[in-house]
Nucleic acid binder design. Structure first.
Lengths: 156, 156
DNA sequence: CATGAAATATGCACGGT
DNA sequence: ACCGTGCATATTTCATG
C-alpha cells in the first residue's frame, strides 16, 4: 500500500488549513498551526510526497464558466465480467464531462457526476458519449436543480 | 447577478491550468498560457474578484486521512413548504460529514455525499446527525465500493 | 530553529499594437 | 483597450549553519 504514514494532530491542522486555502504561504500556514516556518514546510513536503496531499486546485464557479447543468447518472452494466468492467471504466476516464465515477455496493451500479453547458449539450453528451460506451444496460438521470452545499473540505 | 464578465479563451486557459495546479507561480502560469506575467496576473485577479475562481484548495487523499467510507444518501422530505426546506438546508450546512448536498429535479429529493471513517462512524452519523434533522421522510443509502474517477477539473 | 541568498509576487509607468 | 517591457520593493522560499 501507498499511504499509512501516521498523521498526527499538527498534520491534520495543516491539511485542514490547506483545504480551506490552498494558496496559503508557508509563513501564514505556520502561524496558523503554531509552528515556525521550517518544520511547517517540512511537514507539508512530507504530506505531499506521502500522497496525503495529492495536489492543489482552483475552485471554480461552474455557472461563471458556462456550466449550467449538473447531472447524477446511475448506470448499470449488462455484464459484470472483468473485461466489460475494465472497458467501461477506461472509457469513463477519457470523457471530460464525467467528473466523478463511483462504483456502488450491491449491483454493478455506477454513479456518475456530469457537468455540461445546457440541456442541448446534455442530450449530445448522452447520445454521443454515453451511448458510445459498450455494455451499458440502463441509465437513470437525475438533474441537479440547486446546490445546497458543495464543500471541498473533508471532515478531519 | 454577480458573474457575467465575459470569459475569453485566455481566461479559460488560465482557469484550466489553475484547476490542474492551483499553486502554479504566476510566472509559470504566464508561460503556459503564452502571456507575460503582468497581464497574466491581472487576469487572475479579475477572475478571483469576479467570483470565477472562488478559492484554492489542497486535494487530499481520503484514505490517507482515515476516511474509508463514502456514501451517497438520497433523502426525501416529508413536507416541502419553505420552512421545512429552509430548516433542512440550514442543518445540512452545519454537518461536516456532509460534503455535498444537491436538490434534484422532480420530487423534493436531496442527494448527499457523506464521508466518515468507518461503518461504525457511519452508523453514528445516521443516528446522531441525520435522525436529528426534522422533516425527513425517507433515507436511502448507497455506499461507495470504489472510485473510478474523481476529477476536480471542470470541462471548460 | 534561525539566517540570508535567490526566486517570486506585486505595483506602476511607459510604449507599442 | 489590452498586451509587453522594465523596474523597484516587499514577500516568500529554500538551503545552510
Amino acid at each position: 500500500m501507498a499511504s499509512e504514514r501516521s498523521i498526527d494532530s499538527k498534520d491534520r491542522q495543516i491539511v485542514r488549513a490547506l483545504q480551506q486555502d490552498g494558496r496559503l504561504s508557508n509563513i501564514d500556514l505556520a502561524e496558523r498551526v503554531n509552528l515556525s516556518p521550517s518544520p511547517c514546510l517540512r511537514r507539508v513536503r512530507l504530506l505531499e510526497e506521502g500522497g496525503v496531499i495529492q495536489g492543489y486546485s482552483a475552485v471554480v464557479d461552474p455557472k461563471a464558466v458556462g456550466l449550467r447543468i449538473t447531472a447524477f447518472i446511475r448506470i448499470t452494466l449488462a455484464r459484470h465480467d472483468r473485461e466489460a468492467v475494465g472497458r467501461f471504466e477506461a472509457q469513463v476516464q477519457t470523457i471530460d464531462e464525467i467528473l466523478d465515477c463511483h462504483l456502488l455496493t450491491g449491483e454493478a451500479d455506477y454513479l456518475l457526476r456530469v457537468m455540461v453547458a445546457d440541456l442541448d449539450a446534455y442530450e449530445d453528451f448522452v447520445r454521443e458519449r454515453l451511448h458510445g460506451i459498450t455494455g451499458i444496460s440502463s441509465i437513470t438521470t437525475s438533474l441537479v436543480f440547486g446546490t445546497v452545499k458543495a464543500s471541498r473540505a473533508m471532515p478531519i
